[in-house]
Amino acid sequence: MIYVGLTGWGDHPDVYSPGSKKTEKLIDYSSHFPIVELDSSFYAVQPERNIRKWINETPEGFQFVVKAYQGMTGHQRGENPFDSRDEMFEAFRLSIRPLKEAGKLAMVLLQFPPWFDCQRDNVEQIREIVGRLQEFDLAIEFRHQSWYAPELKEKTIEFLRENNLIHSVCDEPQAGDGSIPLVPISTREDKVLFRLHGRNVHGWLNPGNAKKWREVRYLYDYNKKELEEISEAVASLKKSTDNVYVIFNNNSGGHAAGDAKQFQEMNELEFQGLNEKQLDLFEGEF
């Protein structure tokens, strides 16, 4: 099965029903897509009440890709609100466990920072994190090119396979060490993650004002030819994997929803069991 979704549900106006409230955005979103990447969990470990609300607002087969908390993957800026590493991981496990119990947790995404390069200490750090989160399906996303250097690429893939980790395949600007190539290889037979960050090379290298970093970095609209390339990569992954989770993260200019819908149509994908739509806002647009 090929699943298609977006990063978050709070910033995609094209999928909201007319007059819907801010608190109803996930309900509207899940009438269009069967999966979503939960990125608020990266900025703060979410309280159980939020998780249970989101479970109740989505249909039975809906799936969440949960982005791991920033303090767990080395992104932490500012003071960590937890007294210890043990406390931090325990809080995260308790937070997302209801999703797993409800059958709505596709995987936890461990995205490592651009300076997290391929060296022994970092490999051991991954092992330590995996040990703490072993009850969940885990996806690994690298952002330093060294993991895919010619002499290390096969070892990286084998490491993921040996540890039963899901490979997060990425389409992103090719802009030096802080970006990775498109490597459409799955390391598990049941699941693979494919995240699309756009191809804005200039924005990737020169984000400008830190407060507007995401606005610049992920500002991109895929054209038809590029979506055909993505479709070929997804088809390749599907040959060796039961389920391919495709997440569009190019939403700085609001393009993610439209690109995801176009990709869906190009690949003749239809999703059953979604929330009912009040109005098909995309009908006839593509």
Rank of each mutant, 00 (worst) to 15 (best):
M1I: 14
I2M: 11
Y3P: 01
V4Q: 02
L6D: 05
H12L: 12
P13A: 09
Y16T: 02
T23S: 14
E24P: 04
K25C: 08
L26W: 00
I27A: 11
D28T: 09
S30W: 08
H32D: 02
I35Q: 10
V36L: 08
L38Y: 03
F42G: 06
Y43P: 00
Y43D: 05
A44D: 14
A44I: 15
Q46K: 12
E48T: 09
R49W: 07
R52L: 14
N56R: 15
F62Y: 11
F64K: 03
K67P: 12
Y69A: 11
Q70H: 10
G71H: 00
G71T: 02
G71A: 00
G74D: 06
H75C: 00
N80A: 06
F82N: 10
S84D: 03
S84K: 01
E90D: 13
A91C: 09
L99E: 02
A102M: 05
A102H: 08
A102I: 02
L110E: 11
P114R: 10
P114E: 12
R120H: 13
E124T: 10
E124A: 07
R132H: 04
L133P: 08
E135L: 01
F136W: 10
L138Q: 10
I140V: 15
F142A: 12
R143V: 02
Q145H: 14
W147Y: 12
L152K: 14
E158W: 07
R161G: 09
E162Q: 15
E162A: 13
N163F: 05
L165D: 09
V169T: 03
C170Q: 11
E172R: 12
Q174C: 01
Q174D: 13
Q174P: 00
G176D: 12
G176E: 13
G176L: 08
I180H: 07
P181T: 05
V183F: 03
P184A: 06
I185A: 09
I185G: 05
E189F: 14
E189T: 13
K191M: 10
R195F: 14
V201C: 08
H202Q: 08
G203E: 07
W204H: 07
G208M: 02
K212R: 13
V216N: 11
Y218A: 11
L219H: 13
Y220A: 02
N223R: 02
K225C: 05
K225P: 03
L227G: 00
I230D: 02
E232W: 01
V234Y: 07
V234G: 04
L237H: 09
K238E: 12
T241I: 04
V246L: 11
S252R: 06
S252E: 15
S252G: 15
S252D: 08
H255C: 12
G258L: 09
G258W: 09
A260M: 04
F263H: 01
Q264W: 00
E265C: 12
N267I: 03
G273H: 12
G273L: 10
L274H: 03
N275C: 08
L279N: 10
F282D: 05
F282A: 05
